[in-house]
Design a binder for these strands. Sequence first.
DNA 1: CTTGACCTTACCACTATGGGAAGGTTCAAA
DNA 2: TTTGAACCTTCCCATAGTGGTAAGGTCAAG
Lengths: 136, 136
Amino acid sequence: MMRISEAAQHSGLSSKMIRHYEDVGLIQPAARTEAGYRQYSPAQLDQLGFIRHARSLGFSIAQIRDLLQLRDNPRRASREVKQLAQKHLQELDQQMLALKKMQAMLEDLVARCAGDDSPDCVIIDELSDSGETGNE
Amino acid sequence: MMRISEAAQHSGLSSKMIRHYEDVGLIQPAARTEAGYRQYSPAQLDQLGFIRHARSLGFSIAQIRDLLQLRDNPRRASREVKQLAQKHLQELDQQMLALKKMQAMLEDLVARCAGDDSPDCVIIDELSDSGETGNE
DNA sequence: CTTGACCTTACCACTATGGGAAGGTTCAAA
DNA sequence: TTTGAACCTTCCCATAGTGGTAAGGTCAAG
């Protein structure tokens, strides 16, 4: 059994976040010592590691909740896991698209801005324009 | 002079957000009618439009605050504007990079997951792994 | 016994946005 | 004139994820 700071180090999460995940019901409340200190079993350490991995792939807490359920269900169909992952991939795609649009527009503006001592600036001008930005 | 809902429609922002921008000091407090209703001048409408454009390019409130200052400074150097924009471009790049990493890892997992009725699932397996995720 | 390093809970902050409640205003129609 | 719809106001709450801090308890070493 490990205390929370050890569990944090071990899993790559912060103590803060581990408590938070418990608060929001992502993980079961940890066992406590008589003094009220949280204690983590190896199984829970695994779970925390799982969470960190999933977070690093950008899964939301809600999605991780589902993933954990699937993980702990020996009769799961990998189809369900895959679908969850694919849904997240779509979200990542949308975010990429949004970023790309911004990038393209901003790069265009930057390229057309002299960037010298003069106050004339396409960036300011186009942002001031009442026209559209290219977003739908 | 327009009321807030008209200013919202005109600028593409929501009334909610216009009030919020006033709260956080992004825009000057609007004039008020005797009854306390906010009133927006054409100049303020321009400013609101500017804010919407900048937001659509992903600039943060803090960055827009700087942009507005530059916009309202007739002795600005376009260099400053360009630098601000370039800094934001870098941020966009970093976000893109992060997304791409996630995407690549997740795509790999998804490709290797059968997605059938069997419980065997690489996604679950790799997330459960105590090893690294590829992030530094 | 004291000190330092931990632990606990309970707040507040951030970014940007939305929702809603409770109450006031304006204007037009009945 | 009254009433009702459609506004407006402020204030609080929620989202998602993370960090910080403060006030207090615990534990082990010196």
